[in-house]
Design a binder for these strands. Structure first.
Lengths: 177, 177
DNA sequence: ATGGAACGTTCGTTATAAGGAACGCTCGTA
DNA sequence: TACGAGCGTTCCTTATAACGAACGTTCCAT
């Protein structure tokens, strides 16, 4: 938990509150917390408990994660943004990601667990993706699927690319043994 | 914040931890919190700070809200939750959705614009989906694709189903003319 | 002008979440 | 059998989040 996250939480809280035309005192009172508490949070200091967050989320009628969720995906490593969307823990386990790549970038990924497969659907732009010895071009709206239990790679050309990716771990094996 | 929420948080934490085959001591140490703290949380007592929740979410590689999410998320009247994830406005335009369906529910959808296709990837559970005269079963981790310029349908059986869906509008036609 | 009410902030106090050192327990292993 | 390593739990202590009563503002209504 760093200062940046706390700042975004504060800004987010204040935005949600003022968007409703509510005063700080009013929100604090309705949520059942001290206004000094809320004041500190909006300033980006403090480290609220789950109880406090919960009361605020209920009062603002906002899904819980929204209070803390960064405005945009924060991770930018070499022009690639990745955000975990959801995880399925049935058999097989499935991880779902949203991913955005800048033009002319390449992201290499190590092999996942044996039998794992990846599924790609391109939302905008196009990219070249797959096992390093068998990469394919995937255009806007298209999907592809490949074995991910070997080194693989995502590469963009002249345009940005946005895509959904799922990793399917075979036969109920755990992704993080 | 009531006792029930704390219990579900505890159960959720414990499930995520054991699913990875991690010991309580290990997770606490990796996340940088005292194991007494984690122990208390898993028992459904305590009221963690955002810092503590954050460290656990990062270590478990779980989206933040997931830790706290209620067992039964709010559903619309038909037992189906839909959330727009992203929109691509290249050619062709693409809409990306996350979708969750309760057991034994059926959602009918009208035809989209001519040439539109839908792409489904199942994250957990399984469902029967496609044009009403040609529906297919799709299991966890699998994908399918079908013409969406005719009436189509999503149907679950005995289990919940979570999926990613993309709608691809053909030839640059706008989804909402 | 002047009182009152509401606003957001600051500060000392109190409640409590997090930390850390025990404990009893179950395993393998010598 | 005895030992050590690791497990999860239970205390007690310490750090700190939440509270509540101030405070200085602003802005109306008197």
């Amino acid at each position: 938990m760093d200062r940046i996250s706390l700042n975004t939480l504060g800004q987010h809280l204040q935005h949600l509150r003022t968007a409703r035309g509510w005063s700080l005192s009013y929100l604090a009172s309705e949520a059942g917390i001290a206004k000094s508490n809320l004041s500190r949070l909006e300033q980006g200091n403090g480290n609220p408990t789950l109880d406090t967050l919960w009361r605020l989320a209920v009062q603002l009628e906002v899904p819980f994660g929204t209070l803390v969720a960064p405005v945009t995906a924060p991770l930018d490593e070499e022009g690639v943004q990745v955000q975990l969307l959801d995880q399925g823990r049935d058999t097989p386990p499935v991880d779902a990601y949203w991913m955005r790549c800048a033009p002319w970038t390449e992201r290499r990924a190590e092999a996942h667990t044996p039998g794992a497969r990846e599924n790609i659907t391109v939302i905008s732009g196009h990219l070249v993706v797959g096992p390093v010895d068998n990469m394919q071009i995937v255009s806007t709206g298209q999907s592809t699927s490949f074995a991910a239990d070997q080194a693989h790679c995502y590469r963009t050309e002249e345009s940005w690319a946005t895509l959904l990716m799922t990793i399917v771990y075979s036969g109920g094996e755990e992704p993080h043994p």
